[in-house]
């Protein structure tokens, strides 16, 4: 079986997929890739189904090699990956000869990069998912971030992946150089660190309990992503927000994207590994289609919320799904028509 060998651990690289659904009633967070759009795109580029497991690389420093020739795609943050002394381009399928070592550096933009390998990472699923949730040692490899000398099994490539690989692995390649497709899928690039990220969001249950000045401030002020933000949540430092009356709530359900406001503090946008319930007021919810953009906002980066209606947020989900179907069609069309390189 084809294997991936970790040569450099990095800050935190984990196996992720679309998450662990159906277990929230046992207190298990959904989890999964922080940037689901980048995870899906990387998979599509190597002919994998969207639920195939990828490696999520947070920040920098990860490195790996492959035991066999493999078709790989990297999407999400630009962690300036290199192999054979050359930069590896993002958002496109790449054929790598066996034993190539791929290394990542610090992010040029974004926070989370996704590496999809044709066939997917084939670690054993736990509670029906391969997503790593380290707090409870679930999923991935022994439920923890990857370390040097870890070995990950890779599954069987689809026929689409084999067709893509065939067009890239040229017979006349005596130096066995890696070979990238000459096209890529646009969009999805994280917003550069110096620029403000606009995040479309809908009002939460307790938005109207904020005093009127705070309601205005929420939509019209800059917030900065705090350093201690992680897979559980992004703490957003901004203007003072307060409730018209003190709020005492029983613990209630929350989801990825819920923006909670603790009594003495800054709002927290709950991310992939958020607990299944929380006791703070929900002032807003990030639109599902905006979660990737928020996930890729670096600590120190400025964000601003833009209000949209619930119906609009659901329309955006439909549009994003349609866009993704077009990307999938375009990828298979490139193979069928042989319009490669």
């Amino acid at each position: 079986m084809s294997e991936l060998r970790v040569v450099l651990g990095g800050v935190s690289a984990t196996v992720q997929d679309l998450g662990r659904w159906q277990f929230q009633k046992f207190g298990v967070p959904v989890g999964g890739a922080m940037d689901l759009a980048a995870h899906r795109l990387a998979n599509a580029l190597v002919g994998n189904p969207p639920d195939a497991a990828t490696i999520e690389i947070a920040w920098f420093g990860f490195g790996f090699s492959l035991s066999e020739n493999a078709l790989v795609a990297i999407s999400g943050a630009d962690l300036q990956p290199t192999a054979q002394g050359r930069r590896i381009p993002l958002h496109r399928p790449i054929w790598f000869p066996a034993e190539t070592t791929i290394r990542f550096q610090h992010p040029k933009s974004g926070c989370y990069a996704y590496v999809a390998i044709a066939g997917g990472i084939a670690t054993p699923p736990m509670l029906e998912s391969r997503a790593t949730y380290s707090r409870a040692n679930l999923g991935g490899l022994d439920g923890r971030p990857l370390q040097p000398s870890d070995v990950l099994p890779i599954g069987h490539a689809t026929s689409l992946a084999q067709a893509i690989a065939a067009t890239l692995s040229r017979p006349a390649n005596p130096l066995r150089e890696f070979c990238a497709a000459n096209w890529f899928v646009d969009g999805n690039e994280p917003i550069p660190a110096g620029r403000t990220v606009f995040i479309q969001s809908i009002r939460g249950r307790h938005f109207e309990s904020l005093d009127t000045a705070s309601q205005r401030r929420f939509w019209n002020s800059d917030f900065v992503v705090a350093q201690d933000s992680d897979r559980m949540g992004y703490r957003l430092v901004g203007p003072e927000l307060s409730f018209a009356k003190p709020m005492q709530l029983a613990s209630g359900a929350v989801s990825r994207g819920t923006i909670q406001l603790p009594p003495l503090g800054n709002p927290i946008a709950l991310m992939a590994d958020a607990a299944t319930s929380g006791g703070y007021p929900n002032i807003a919810h990030v639109a599902t289609t905006e979660l990737s953009k928020l996930a890729q906002a670096q600590p120190g980066q400025t964000i601003r919320f833009r209000e949209i209606e619930l119906a609009c947020a659901q329309q955006l989900i439909a549009e994003q799904a349609e866009h993704f179907r077009q990307v999938q069609r375009a990828i298979s069309f490139r193979v069928v028509s042989g319009a490669w390189r």
């Binding site: 159906q22 029983a250 119906a311 659901q314 439909a318």
Partner: peptide, 22 residues
């Protein structure tokens, strides 16, 4: 429908808006 999650005095229902909107 995806998943129903009990709370103390509530149930959260997770769903796919592509299949059924609010």
């Amino acid at each position: 429908f995806i998943e129903a999650v009990p709370g103390f005095t509530s149930v959260a229902v997770y769903y796919e808006p592509l299949r059924a909107d609010w």
